[in-house]
Structure formats: C-alpha cells, structure tokens
Amino acid sequence: MKPHRRNRLALILFISFGLSVTVGLTLFALSQNINMFFTPTQVAQGEVQPGQAFRIGGMVKEGSLVKNELDLAVRFTTTDFVSDVPIAYNEASGILPDLFREGQGIVAEGSVDAFGIFQATKVLAKHDENYMSPEVKAAMDAAKLLNADESDLVNEELTK
C-alpha cells in the first residue's frame, strides 16, 4: 500500500475510534436518563424524589388487579419480585392495552402520592421476545404443572 494511502487509512481509523469513544462515554454518562423507567426496587430505595413525575416498569403482580366497573378505576401492584409498588389508574383517561393482565410486564407514567401510591396517567404493556403458539404454551404449562406436582409429591415424601 502506498504511504499516503496508509496514512489516510490510519486517519480514518483514528477518527472512527475517537468518535466511538466520544459517543460511548456520552451515552455512559447519560445512561440514567436513557433508561426508560425505574424499577420498583429503585423506587423503594428512594431514588425518586416525592412528587417527581417518572416512569415505573415491572410485572403486574398475580392476584393484585382490582377493577371498579362504576368509575373505571383500576388498582394493581407492580413488582420486580424484590419490591412492590401499588399503582392507581383510571381508564377514563385511556383504555388499558389488550395485553394488560396479571403477570404481564408494564410501564406506567405518573408520580407517587402522599400515601405511597403511584398515580398513573398512562399505562403501557410490554411483551417479551418469546413467541409461542397457544398449543406450545398450553403444552409447556401442562409440563410445568406436572413437574410441580411431582416435586410436591417428593416434598410430601420428604416431610413424612
């Protein structure tokens, strides 16, 4: 390779490297702001100021969903399986997404009120990257149930 070409290639690589480092450091410094939501644990640890508007992301806890058919108020608890945060929402300000259900990941926008309840103004549903046909899902659930039964039996044996 001719010297002037080698120099130019070196310059391009140097510029690419410099740009990558700059962008990388900027994004790293901003990562707290780039994150879309706080987890219930972060909220429990007091990382959010009282009254501050923010987004919270977690699972809808099984058995926590209560809907009031009269005033469309919805109450549920969001969890990351370490901490829980209760959420209040009113469907009068927008119908919940079809995917919203217990055990589903959600992101809610709002703030925590004086009683420690997250007053949501918007609730979005997350979905994961695992696609399954209903048949596969049913088969997997059945297998899981079977395993659970077996381990229950083993436990019973052990307790005897």
Binding site: M36, F37, L124, D128, E129, Y131, V136
Partner: peptide
Amino acid sequence: WWNTLHQPASAVTIGGGDVN
C-alpha cells in the same frame, strides 16, 4: 444496555414445541 419498552432480540430454538 438500557431498559426499554421494546423487547430484546429473540433467541431462536431449533427443535419444535419450544419458544421461538
């Protein structure tokens, strides 16, 4: 790197009867 509404990339499985 960050938490998002968008799901991560799916990991495919070769055999039948599994996710993806």
